[in-house]
Amino acid sequence: MAKSFHLRIMTAEGTLLEGEADYCHIPTTAGSVGVLADHAPMLCAMPEGETLCRMEDGTEKTVRHSSGVADVRDNRVTILADRAEL
């Protein structure tokens, strides 16, 4: 099984999604980025769009969100957006 990382999607109104994921596809202002475990530290700005997350148990979740930022480091991915919904 693929190695997983900790994923957290936060908005001002609370944490929308938190759990172990093994892949996520983040749209950034410079083009989309696919993140797997052990990704290099990265901080990126995201435009409004959709982030696709494949959780550890195989379920896929699509999160629609406003513009925001994504922080990737030490196998933790934190996505901050003013608004987001599953």
Binding site: A40, C44, A45, V69
Partner: peptide
């Protein structure tokens, strides 16, 4: 300052996004 961090698309526009968020959060 962690030199190994990749900034996407670049540090300046990222800072602008973060500052916008900061202002919104402060007002809220």
């Amino acid at each position: 300052a962690d030199r190994s961090t990749i900034f996407e698309p670049d540090r300046d526009s990222l800072l602008n996004t973060l500052l916008d968020m900061y202002i919104g959060n402060t007002v809220h």
